[in-house]
Write a protein that binds this DNA or RNA. Structure first.
Lengths: 278, 278
DNA sequence: TGATATACTTGACCGCGATCAACGAGTAAG
DNA sequence: CTTACTCGTTGATCGCGGTCAAGTATATCA
């Protein structure tokens, strides 16, 4: 019983061998429909969560789901721009994004920032922090965002009892490493156009996973964060966006993006320019 | 009882808060002294291994060490340049470096390579592969290298029973993520000189951890791999090495390196050029 | 309605580092 | 010894993308 769930990947689906497999049961209820300020101290209900096939419950038997619900604190709401934790916050919990989106970044003592990831509903934040007393990065809500909190001590205890869950944790962390390697690859080998194309495709496939439009979505993050994440200047990001637009590959107005020619985007990411050489 | 072990980090010690803590018992037996072709089907002896305070045994009680020894296949020897696994090899095991060193890299379908890490004695390879059917990268011995093999199915089973070991696995994987983030940061923000200084300091601290000279060592990898890892051209690496040499910061002849002025190297990594601005 | 940010775009310039090319040095095989 | 190879160094040129600068939305708030 091997469950696969690709979290937060940058690699275009075609490259990442075996593109994201979706459980073919369409849960139709959208996560966004959560009533505001649902500060319910009531018991969490992973059972009813529309993301249960993406999030941690994915790896938990129906019978054991209750044990996961016992440890999770559900539904904390963060406003746009709000800090969730930073490098000086004592590490206590991992967070699953329920709705909205967040960014994580490392901030050096020199003051400059490196965005290390964007996290969208169903994805788990904080896996990079499981080796220290404080969080290894800073997390900020990119929009109004709802998070489920998993205290790590409880979580570790539970994974010790549920082999499937433990396996899934290894799985997720391993994938986080792979994503980061992909990012490194992107940063060291690829042009500005290739990087941006890769990001757009990554976002696209992550929207698709949530059964939303894969070609028509709005970017959760400002150009600024895109630039930082991809190791570019904001101006360059802007230029590439307009270049893509002029080529008819995308249509972008502000954060609203429409992918007009996904194939073309994929062509950009694969190194067709370099193919002649090797 | 929290054990800390920094594996394979790129961040200069001063940045990485709380520099690597060493268990103050100096085990003097060198790992290199392993007789060639010791294909011993005999039981492994983590007890006697000089790296037991760096490697997985670090997180296992004296009493339980035997259970770890039960699952490990010890002492496989690989020659310089020899493949250990690649992206098409079915994922089966993680490997601990016993002596020598290896590099891991991703190779795209386009044929170009991105070196994702160098692994030295006491460090665990394969953590990025725990989410797929095959390894996520390609591993190659940089020199004559001896590895201990941990079959993952057995390992997962064991970590389910030994909470300390499970915790340590999370710890290591988390650190792998952090390292990769540090690399991404380096690649997207830092100049050639800063990247190379960071690598030299990283290697230095990893040699120190093994109680070897932190200022006088020989690079396990060719310039080629350094360049690839740091997202630079070989020529640039060469130029920076000679520049550092002319500045009296290092002395390098071939792979033999001597760090003459560690402080200066640290100065290079911190962004003193940028300090005026922010 | 205005004012003050913040986000995004576009243009002009220039520097770091890639690229191309040649060369030196060490090693192995004949 | 030559030949062929890999590895490392150094020089000359050029282009991508960073930087600086100005201008244009789009917000938020008094």
């Amino acid at each position: 019983m091997t469950m696969r769930f690709q979290q937060n990947t940058l690699a275009p689906p075609a490259i990442r061998c075996g593109s994201p497999q979706l459980n073919p049961d369409g849960s139709s209820v959208m996560a966004q429909a959560i009533p505001l300020h649902q500060m319910s101290p009531l018991k969490a209900s992973c059972h009813q969560c529309s993301l249960s096939n993406l999030c941690l419950p994915l790896a938990v038997e129906e019978n054991d789901l209750e044990r996961l619900e016992d440890i999770v604190q559900q539904g904390k709401i963060y406003n746009r721009g709000e800090h969730i934790f930073d490098q000086s916050t004592p590490f206590k919990s991992c967070f699953a994004v329920k709705s909205g989106s967040i960014k994580t970044s490392i901030i050096t003592e020199g003051g400059d920032e490196q965005v290390t990831g964007f996290f969208m509903p169903g994805e788990l934040v904080g896996l990079d922090s499981m080796s220290g007393e404080t969080y290894a990065c800073t997390a900020k809500a990119l929009e109004r965002t709802s998070l489920c909190e998993f205290p790590v001590d409880k979580l570790e205890e539970l994974t010790g009892k549920l082999p499937e869950l433990q396996h899934h944790m290894y799985h997720l962390m391993s994938q986080e490493i792979q994503n980061s390697h992909q990012l490194a690859m992107l940063l060291s080998k690829n042009t500005a156009e290739e990087r941006i194309a890769a990001l757009l495709l990554s976002l696209s496939s992550r929207f698709r996973r949530r059964r939303m439009s894969a070609t028509n979505f709005s970017l959760p993050m400002p150009r600024n964060d895109i630039a930082n994440f991809l190791g570019l200047a904001v101006e360059t990001v802007s230029r590439v966006f307009t270049r893509f637009q002029n080529q008819g590959i995308i249509r972008a107005r502000g954060r609203e993006v429409e992918l007009l020619d996904v194939e073309a985007l994929q062509m950009v990411t694969r190194d067709f320019a370099k193919q002649g050489r090797q």
